[in-house]
Amino acid sequence: MSDFTKIKSYPLPKIAISVGDVAGIGPELSIACATSEAIAKRCQPILFGPLDVLQRVAERLNLSIPEMIDVPIDGASAVEPGRFTAATGQASYDAVCRAMDATMTGQTAAMVTGPIQKEAWHAAGIEFPGHTELLADRTGTNEFSMMLTSDTISCVLATIHVPLADVPTVLSIDLVARAIRHGADALYRRLGRSPRIAVCALNPHAGENGLFSHGEETRIIEPAMTRVRREWAASTALEIIGPLPPDTAFTPMMREKVDVYICMYHDQGLIPLKALSFDDAVNVTLGLPIVRTSVDHGTALDLAWKGVAKRTSMMAAIQMAIDLSCPTSDN
């Protein structure tokens, strides 16, 4: 199927799922989760990806293909598990764009993205480094943040796909305040109360008053925290602590007191999150006009088409997409 005119309509919210790079584990996870009873009772999942390749994956793993929008790929018969190419990169990009268009026009209530291979996008000449930047560009969103979340820990990133050496020059009061604000809004909706927020420092020991820093904590992070506190003060008090030394911010005792962490760079948040919740964490793009969630793992090329990859992150991503877009849908 290549358009929505052939998609049967059910009295459940439609959720778009782009299957990711077909050389990886995205197709099998998307198919298996979309056909599971737990998902089928809450939404109508619609896959976006190359039908020819997905049929091969389904036949190999004895799975049935759910309803889907076919996004053709060049040389479908030559696609092999574990071997990404420019063609698989282009197909995964096209699938994301089709799923995004469906969600932006209201044909689907939300979108879930399977794992892409960023090198394959680069090989295909695609200028975006990842999903988040593409989504922001196509939706005309200037202020967005990436949140990685699970039942154990939630982290919002002030900077995303930025080389570590560039982080100090990229950080600004506006950028950190945006991440705090997005984290506060997201967790307020999720918890129904004012969330407890911990802001991580950039430098060791939170800079030790300038001994181990160039003043990022006092020049950038603290003013950003003050700004957001003042914004929320008119309606409800917001508990924001920090800047915290990153090496103690994520201890078990601290996590009991924190609902969401604001992290200055990619690995500062993703290392603790993946250590604690590798199998069930979800990536949520905050600030977009649509709901987008994603798995929090890569393409796992060595496991592709074997039926052994864990489905928990994809299941959690679909469930969260339903919760965020259709909170009254049956649990």
Rank of each mutant, 00 (worst) to 15 (best):
I271F: 05
G307A: 09
A321F: 12
V282I: 06
K274N: 08
T299G: 05
G287M: 09
P327F: 13
T293N: 14
D302K: 01
C326N: 12
F278S: 02
D296V: 00
G287D: 11
T293R: 07
G307K: 06
L270E: 03
V282A: 07
W305N: 03
S294D: 14
D296I: 01
A275I: 00
D296C: 01
D296N: 07
A321I: 08
V295C: 09
D323W: 04
C326F: 04
T285D: 13
P289R: 02
K306W: 07
I322P: 14
W305I: 09
L324A: 06
M314G: 00
D279M: 10
M320F: 10
K274G: 03
D279Y: 13
I318C: 06
G307L: 02
D279T: 13
T312A: 15
A316K: 02
G307P: 13
T285N: 12
G307T: 06
A300C: 08
A317L: 13
V291G: 01
L301K: 05
R292T: 00
M315K: 00
R292A: 04
L273T: 01
P327A: 08
Q319P: 06
T312N: 15
T293K: 10
L273V: 02
D280R: 07
A317M: 09
D302M: 06
A275M: 10
I290G: 08
S294R: 10
Q319F: 13
H297R: 01
D296A: 04
A317H: 11
A317F: 10
L324N: 11
F278D: 03
